[in-house]
Simulated assay, not measured.
Amino acid sequence: MHCQTCGADSSTVGACPRCGVSPDRPPLSPGMPTLAVHGIGLAAAIGVGLTALLYTLVALAPVLRVLLTPPGGDPGRQPAPLAAEGLLSLAYVVVFLATAVLVMVWMFRARKNTDAFPGGRKVLAAHWAITGWWVPVASLAVPCLVMVGIVRDTLDRVWLRVLVGVWWLAWLAFGIADLVTSLAEVGDRVRRAEQGLTPDLDHYRDAALRNTVPALACLVAAAALVAVVLRVSAVQQARIDGAAWRAALLPPSTPTQPVTGPTPQVPGDPTVASPQVPPGSGGTIGA
């Protein structure tokens, strides 16, 4: 048994595992536009993975200072670790900003496509896929709600919704842990400056240990988000391409030509007239 939309082998009961279309529903609502998500979804997934990798390297950069500092040297004045840390931090900021744009655009496109999927429950408008990240307080929940709606209306699978929850919880944990470690780093530097001390090897060891928590949360959030983006992109693109493939197989409809000539008349049976009796001789009676 093959799916009527994308042609994939669909031996399971219910929605197609590839395109998410139920046998009793059309793949797309007539007249609703759709947006491509495969390319930008792949770019967003690569950006998320690269961002997580760069953040992990930046978070563990104090270990580099410890390893490259000679015995008796000052780890805060080593040029090689300082230059490497600066380049990693710059690369992380650039990649993070570019990835943020890609993820927002992908979420907007994926949310917009769900408007064309029959049977979905649209709770938030598509613009919340972008504006939800910028509104104070609302940014703590709106992006997750938008992603849940995208997953529900695209391919409602329990494991996919669990991945969305893991992504958002890990993202919040990463933000809180990164803020806490940054404040702790600043506080430690201020305390040492007040005491006339410079950061030593113990300082960088402690910093690397503190940074382990946000680094792990970042990796978990990135892995979950990459899995969601790639799966949703594949399902949506299969549905969109399958709908186009299905429409291409249908024969074009022949438009009905209007009738411009007169309506032909159907000849009827001739009327049989009664025979006429010729008048008799003599004219009128009694003449």
Score class of each variant (00 low, 15 high):
L250P: 10
F174R: 05
V158N: 08
G20Q: 07
A222V: 15
A287Y: 08
L68P: 03
L179T: 07
W159V: 13
Y204L: 00
M107W: 12
L249H: 11
A222F: 04
C218E: 06
P270F: 01
P70T: 03
G242N: 06
Q265S: 10
P275I: 00
D153K: 02
I285W: 13
S22P: 14
C16Y: 02
L82N: 14
P279I: 01
A244P: 15
T254L: 13
V146Q: 01
G282H: 03
F174Q: 12
P27R: 02
L35A: 14
V235I: 00
G283L: 06
G165I: 08
Q78C: 04
Q276D: 04
V101L: 15
L225M: 09
R65N: 02
G7W: 03
V266C: 05
L90N: 12
L57G: 02
A193C: 06
V66F: 00
A238P: 00
T154E: 03
L88W: 00
N211A: 00
W134R: 10
P62F: 10
G119K: 07
I150M: 01
A234R: 06
A247S: 15
A100Y: 09
Q4D: 14
A244R: 04
L249F: 09
R157P: 10
W245E: 05
C6E: 04
F174T: 05
V58T: 14
L155Q: 10
Q237R: 12
L197A: 07
R121K: 03
A116L: 06
R152K: 03
Q265G: 08
L155K: 12
P23R: 06
A98Y: 15
G261F: 12
G286D: 15
G268T: 15
H127D: 15
L64G: 04
L35G: 11
A52N: 06
L179H: 13
Q276F: 09
G86P: 06
G47I: 00
E194W: 13
Q4E: 12
D115I: 14
K122W: 09
H2Y: 13
M1D: 09
D9K: 08
P255V: 00
P62Y: 07
L102Y: 05
V272S: 07
L97V: 15
C144F: 13
E194H: 14
L67S: 06
A247Q: 10
A247N: 10
L230P: 11
C3G: 13
R239T: 10
P278V: 04
F108G: 03
L87E: 12
G196S: 14
L88D: 01
C3N: 09
V137E: 04
A193H: 11
A177C: 04
A273N: 12
S182Y: 07
L209I: 15
D241Y: 07
I130E: 01
A223P: 06
S29W: 06
L140C: 04
T198P: 00
G76A: 09
P30R: 09
T263A: 07
G286M: 08
L28E: 03
A173K: 05
D269Y: 08
T271C: 09
P267C: 05
A221P: 09
G120A: 05
G132Y: 03
T56G: 09
V105M: 05
C6S: 02
R210K: 01
S274H: 07
L82G: 13
P26C: 05
P258A: 04
G187L: 11
P71G: 08
V180C: 06
